[in-house]
């Protein structure tokens, strides 16, 4: 056991910083935030679609009233029979589909592994980087349900799209477990050549509701 390790390390840190003037506060070290809050002033949804597509996500842009139809068609194309959904997923999103939607009530991992896909909403999406963030909030469920199934269909409302990373960080609550998703799982570990599809969902489909 490392009794006293804490005190030893902190003492070594303080000794190492003997050159830092006494009385200097952390805020006295100037951090100039000269970078921009967003790199685009243009149309965010178009940019988000472009970025998501670049990462090989399948993207649909539909009027809000047609979300159910878009979800139903996507699930049909995919050949999905059973999906898992967060308990508070809006029922209207899956109303037009005939798939069996299993609400996640602390399902075992093996059960999650047995469904064909998952449908969730999101906390927000970042246009500049093509990133969708889940925060385990409304219509998202716990982290495991968007991880174990091989197919993830995510509904993004147009009003959830922010321009760039700084706006996203400002809106997100660090107290919640967050998952930032930019396309399907991928690897560059073989000759630094990017291929999609490893351990996370190998297909990411996004329905953007305007």
């Amino acid at each position: 056991m490392s009794d006293g390790a804490r005190e030893r390390i902190l003492a070594k840190v303080r000794a190492a910083l003997a050159d830092v003037p006494r009385g200097e506060e952390p805020e006295d070290v100037v951090v100039t935030r000269g970078y921009v809050r967003a790199h685009t002033g243009g149309e965010l949804i178009g940019l988000l679609v472009d970025r998501l597509t670049d990462y090989r996500a399948v993207v649909h842009r539909v009027p809000a009233a047609e979300v159910a139809e878009a979800v139903a068609q996507a699930l049909k194309r995919r050949g999905v029979r059973r999906i898992v959904v967060p308990p508070d997923l809006p029922t209207r999103w899956t109303a037009a589909s005939s798939v069996v939607a299993v609400a996640d009530e602390a399902l075992a991992v093996a059960e999650l592994d047995g469904v064909d896909g998952v449908v969730t909403g999101c906390a927000l999406a970042v246009a500049e980087t093509g990133t969708i963030v889940l925060d385990a909030g409304v219509a998202q469920g716990r982290r495991a349900i968007s991880l174990v199934p091989d197919y993830h269909l995510c509904v993004v409302r147009a009003d959830q799209v922010v321009g760039d990373v700084p706006d996203a960080v400002a809106l997100l609550d660090p107290g919640r477990p967050l998952t930032w998703i930019s396309g399907p799982s991928a690897t560059s570990d073989i000759e630094l050549d990017r291929v999609e599809g490893v351990h996370g969902p190998r297909t990411l489909e996004v329905v953007i509701a305007e």
């Binding site: 990462y55 967050l178 930019s182």
Partner: peptide, 11 residues
């Protein structure tokens, strides 16, 4: 990449 495929944060 503009963003890596997955980032997890937890507290």
């Amino acid at each position: 990449e503009r963003m890596n495929p997955y980032t997890s944060t937890w507290t």
